[in-house]
Design a protein around this nucleic acid. Structure first.
Lengths: 346, 346
DNA sequence: AAATAAAGTGTGTTCGAGCACATTTATTGT
DNA sequence: ACAATAAATGTGCTCGAACACACTTTATTT
């Protein structure tokens, strides 16, 4: 009754052979106008959907996907990605897929290049990478492209027409979200945007967040906030920031643009004069701990796990089921407080 | 080199036929100890993973899944579910699946029962339902179970050992999230928990949210809040709440436990005396509009779309790939403000 | 020891799409 | 009109797992 139509069914209905139907469906030509009409007539009436299972059984090529990201041992920010990768691997382990992960030292361009060389050795079908070093990334992307290897990026965006897809967040928007949060939890006064030195990290990341943050307050009429940008460098963060705190008694809110908000939290938790509100990024353990203590008020979740997961699954589904890969997948900007954190921590 | 092992490969390696390997893999018996050992020896060495594609090609049974939920025309809360269902249908349309949706009037038990009868007529393999009427739900679940039809629920939980899986949110926790939000955006004063009459809705829903909300403040030391619960009924919401507002000039925050926060927002947006903060539920248009106007501060997203989507996909993957269905899938409690709303609106 | 039952093993077909190749039909040139 | 060639069409095999069925070997009964 509601059995799916097969090519054989169409052939029978149209009074031709399955070979002809196949040629029509794939526009391979070598079909007479008469036969073409007959088949199209049938296709118009019935709703044919090729059986993906059967289609893929034949195509038993092994697809190889390589993922390149900074070593989570060096920067724990990337740890959740491993879970995302793991989920994807588990989900597709029954298919003809080889998914391999490569780490590089996020502080060393050489390490990044070396990892890419190792990937090239394997001549994979696709590469998913977290592009930290701009120039180097553009170069390797071109290399991959010339070898017909698909390149997708996640977390960081990079300008290159050779990148098929990007998974990440709108950082400008995420800055606005942070601004809105601080706006709602602080009374007027001074707000500090704090960039904590992460030498290697694409500075664009932090800049975009700052732009969004300031944009929110610029748009707001009669805003009585003063916004100051602070660039702190380890190991001087503590001293510099303490000085700043003492010089700015009006400070009511802090927006930390990196996952290092725990460093700021540590300082202000000793600083009992006044309640200062903090909004930061990323659910790493130290941050969650200060979130639970009430020192950090909100954390914006960048959802690295899902970024990695979607980066892989979109490639897998492209290879296995010829699903189109969207040029850009923007993940929601999740707002986390002490009460809903457990659902996002990975 | 890294081709996947097939049953044939195992057979060759073990020096038996693929029939014997098959019997070992499926524990069908009729295998001599000697042959069993040989096959197990090979299986120990190699990492065999059956090809799901091939497996499912053979099993060309058509699975029928029915979804029962309130008519979104009557309660727009359920509208996002349609998108979730749609996504799942699209994703699996190439497989042997029939997914059918049935609506019932959320105000009429009879309508619910009638919808279930229609479902029973089709004798599906599984049913996914939003259980509104407790007693009736328990009855139909028993009926389904006796007919070997799998029953999963979403959105509302119902006590029944016959339910295989539940997809939803922890409502107690969501009450706590709301409390934390109001706590962070209001100064001490009075807070109102507002239940707006939705006759049909399982009152447990709202009660759980209230319990969580109060629990947060109970746990908080030296909290200087007064918490009042208000039960409002349409069409008297406006009059009653205006009276309440006038009688309680100290009111600083409102927690609306249903998706009707726009009704409260409408009232307080005319009430210019003081800034009153509002936290409510669900991204329906009216609420988002007040969110953007700054009348509602936060909305908790119940993610109906994903609830429906996961409810279906878990069943599909169970049938198609014999994946286990988790007994309970708890979705994150998403916090939404005017800046990140666009990512959640469906 | 032969007959019969039981246990163990292998072979062959199926699922649906895809594609190579064989076969048939139509068209062109002489 | 009849090759020669081109165009159109159909047949049959493949992928891997699953399972029915036929066949062979071993065990049990008389």
């Amino acid at each position: 009754m509601d059995k799916k139509y097969t090519i054989k069914d169409i052939a029978k209905l149209a009074g031709v052979s399955k070979g002809t139907v196949d040629r029509v469906l794939h526009k391979r030509g070598k079909v007479s106008p008469a036969a073409l009409d007959k088949v199209n007539e049938v296709l118009k009436v019935i709703d044919y959907e090729p059986n993906l299972i059967a289609r893929n059984l034949k195509n038993n090529k092994i697809y190889r996907i390589c993922i390149l990201l900074p070593d989570p041992e060096i920067d724990p920010y990337w740890r959740p990605c491993l879970n995302g990768i793991d989920d994807a691997v588990k989900e597709f382990k029954a298919y003809n897929l080889v998914i391999e992960t490569f780490y590089f030292n996020p502080e060393k361009k050489k390490s990044f290049l070396k990892a890419n060389e190792a990937v090239l050795e394997l001549s994979p079908d696709a590469v998913l990478l977290a592009p930290l070093f701009h120039k180097e990334t553009v170069d390797v992307i071109e290399k991959y492209h010339s070898l017909n290897i698909i390149v997708n990026t996640f977390n960081n965006q990079v300008e290159s027409s050779f990148v098929k897809s990007f998974v990440g967040q709108d950082l400008f928007r995420s800055g606005r979200v942070a601004a809105k949060l601080l706006d709602s939890i602080t009374d007027n006064g001074q707000i500090a945007i704090v960039h904590i030195d992460e030498t290697y990290k694409n500075a664009i990341h932090m800049q975009e967040k700052e732009r969004g943050f300031r944009n929110y307050f610029d748009e707001k009429e009669n805003s009585a906030y003063t916004i100051t940008t602070l660039k702190l460098k380890n190991p001087n963060v503590e001293i510099s920031f303490n000085t700043f705190l003492n010089e700015n008694p009006d400070l009511s809110g802090i927006f930390v643009t990196t996952s290092k908000s725990y460093q700021i939290a540590k300082i202000i938790s000793d600083f009992k004069n006044k309640k200062i509100r903090v909004v930061g990024y990323d659910l790493i353990d130290e941050n969650v701990s200060y979130l639970n203590q009430g020192v950090i008020d909100f954390i914006i979740h960048q959802n690295q796990k899902r970024q990695a997961y979607l980066g892989i699954t979109s490639l897998v589904e492209y290879f296995l089921f010829q699903k189109e890969i969207p040029e850009m997948i923007l993940l929601p900007i999740d707002i986390v407080n002490a009460e809903n954190a457990e659902y996002y921590v990975e």
